[in-house]
């Protein structure tokens, strides 16, 4: 089983490690797995996370940056002093574990409802938006020369991708049509500045402690593009979990996010951020429809997938609130 392979792998690069314990699968589909385990060491156990595509799953699907690129980005972020786990080991063929990497496990919470409601995070909530502004500015400022090869995206390409995917469902959604038209008409064109974009900077991919943000995870959707995309995505209402008057993740204001970003020496373009918020809202809506398609086509015939399909209407009301707000 995986314990034996992991123990052999860890022994080959971790001096003094005598084994591993407590391996448990956390999440992921067939092509990508996340495991937690402890490296057993005389000086005390060390918490670790394995992120891998099992043997036989080589190529990364569609938009994914690939696990090698994810490892490089995480390590670069760590080296730049950003909240990011240290990468302990990049898997080699002789490890027999597939492709991927092993990183330091960082303790904290990723579940939005707990972060937004539990007393434990009461002191973190008021500081998070500004902190995350500084963090994402740091991500956008990572040294270009060291970055891995990634796809390059623009607003124009993103609109076309979303439209293609929406049309493939063959199910009419007038509100999505309105959003697509709005986006096409306001497409700001190529960004003057193209930087690394995290691509999925939101609840679920952020480890939060009582002291604030501890790690940025999941670089799977990293790409080059308009840095304002990340600022718009974290403002999408779907990540506010009911706290709709606090646009940044349900805990903060745009002004705080932008202030943190500018403190780190970067410039915010609020109109572009708003454009990407609309794009992001539509994107999540189309992703919900995609889940429903996969539910229908199988093999994952799960209720969760099916029910996520019924959440796309949430993005429709949020799009209308953005594009056709009502008085009152």
């Amino acid at each position: 089983m995986i314990e034996g392979q992991l123990a052999r792998c860890v022994a080959s690069w971790f001096p003094g490690a005598t084994g591993i314990t407590g391996a448990a699968r956390l999440s992921g589909g067939a092509s990508q797995e996340t495991w937690t385990f402890d490296v057993v060491h005389p000086d005390g156990n060390v918490g670790a996370i394995l992120r891998r595509a099992p043997p036989g799953y080589g190529a990364s699907p569609g938009r994914a940056a690939g696990l090698d690129a994810e490892a490089t980005l995480m390590q670069l972020a760590h080296d730049a002093g950003l909240p990011s786990p240290r990468v302990m080991h990049v898997l080699r063929p002789e490890d027999g574990l597939g492709r991927g990497f092993i990183m330091q496990r960082i303790e904290g919470e990723t579940i939005a409802r707990k972060i937004l409601r539990d007393e434990e995070f009461a002191r973190a909530r008021p500081i998070l938006a500004r902190q995350l502004g500084r963090v994402i500015a740091g991500v956008h400022g990572l040294p270009a020369a060291k970055l891995p090869k990634l796809r390059e995206m623009s607003a124009t390409k993103e609109i076309a991708d979303l439209e293609r995917e929406y049309r493939s469902f063959n199910w009419p959604r007038p509100v999505f049509e309105l959003a697509l038209r709005w986006l096409r008409q306001r497409d700001p064109g190529p960004s003057q500045e193209v930087t690394l974009v995290h691509g999925d900077f939101r609840h679920g991919n952020l480890i939060i402690g009582p002291d604030g943000v501890r790690a940025v995870l999941d670089w799977e959707l990293a790409h080059f593009g308009d840095p304002m995309e990340d600022l718009g995505w974290i403002c999408v209402n779907s990540w506010r979990f009911g706290e709709i008057d606090k646009p940044v993740g349900g805990f903060g204001t745009r002004e705080e996010l932008f202030a943190g970003y500018e403190e780190a020496g970067r410039k915010v373009d609020p109109d572009r951020v708003m454009f990407w918020e609309v794009m992001g809202t539509l994107r999540w809506g189309i992703m919900c429809c995609g889940m429903m398609q996969r539910f229908r086509q199988g093999p994952d015939h799960s209720m969760e997938r099916a029910m996520i399909g019924r959440r796309s209407s949430e993005t429709e009301i949020d799009l209308l609130r953005l594009l056709a707000p009502r008085e009152g």
Partner: peptide
């Protein structure tokens, strides 16, 4: 779909 969705309740 989601009568408890906050945006819906607001609207």
């Amino acid at each position: 779909d989601q009568p408890n969705y906050a945006s819906y309740k607001r609207e």
